[in-house]
Simulated scan of single mutants.
Amino acid sequence: MKVTLATHGGQAAAIHLRLPPRVLDTDVLPEDAAAELARLVAAAVPAAEEERHGRAPDAMSYTITVEDEGRSTVLTQSDAAMSPAFAALLGWLEKHFA
């Protein structure tokens, strides 16, 4: 599975425009980390499909693309309206990209 994280907007929007999306491939992760990522993705997909409304000027938005076995799933949420499952996945990715 390959997971890509792209960030958009926020007060540092000009900086984010220049940054490429970050990519994480489970093939390079330890088995327990890959399993944890798969669990977080599985929890975030149904939560991201629920429509969330909320507007905030300068809010960051996040696009997580999951490619697995020939399928591609795109999850998009923002700081203004983010499910707990999406937030958990985002936090895990941020920690492992550092």
Rank of each mutant, 00 (worst) to 15 (best):
M60G: 08
L75R: 00
H8D: 12
T7A: 14
D25A: 09
L37F: 01
A34E: 01
G9M: 07
D32Y: 02
V66T: 09
A59H: 05
V41R: 01
E51W: 14
A35W: 02
V28Y: 06
G10Y: 01
K2Q: 15
T65P: 01
T73F: 03
A59F: 06
S61G: 11
P84S: 12
T76N: 14
A33S: 09
E31N: 07
H8V: 12
G9I: 05
R55G: 15
A13D: 10
I64C: 04
L17G: 07
L17I: 02
T73E: 13
G91E: 09
A87T: 06
E51G: 15
H8P: 02
L90M: 08
D79W: 04
D68V: 09
K2T: 13
S72I: 15
A12K: 06
G54I: 08
A14W: 07
D79K: 06
R22V: 04
R52V: 00
T63I: 06
D68T: 11
D58N: 15
A85T: 03
A98D: 15
K2S: 09
A81P: 14
K2W: 06
A38Y: 00
V66F: 04
R71T: 08
F86R: 02
V28M: 04
A80P: 09
A47G: 11
V74I: 15
L89K: 02
E50T: 15
G91Q: 09
S61E: 13
V74Q: 10
G54W: 10
L37N: 03
D25G: 06
S83Q: 09
P57E: 13
S78T: 13
E50P: 00
A43S: 13
A59S: 13
S78I: 05
I64D: 01
A34M: 02
M1H: 09
V23Q: 11
R22C: 03
M60K: 10
V66A: 11
T7D: 03
T73I: 14
A14M: 11
G9K: 04
E31T: 09
Y62C: 07
F97S: 00
D68C: 10
G9R: 01
E31D: 12
D27W: 01
L93G: 02
S61R: 11
L37E: 00
K2Y: 04
L19W: 00
G91V: 07
A38E: 10
G10N: 06
A35N: 07
A42M: 11
T73Q: 11
Y62W: 15
V45G: 05
T63H: 08
E94A: 08
T26V: 07
V66C: 05
P57L: 12
H8M: 14
H16S: 01
A12N: 10
E69L: 12
D68Y: 05
S78G: 14
A33K: 05
W92N: 03
G54H: 08
E69V: 12
S78H: 06
V3A: 03
Q11H: 12
A38S: 14
A59W: 04
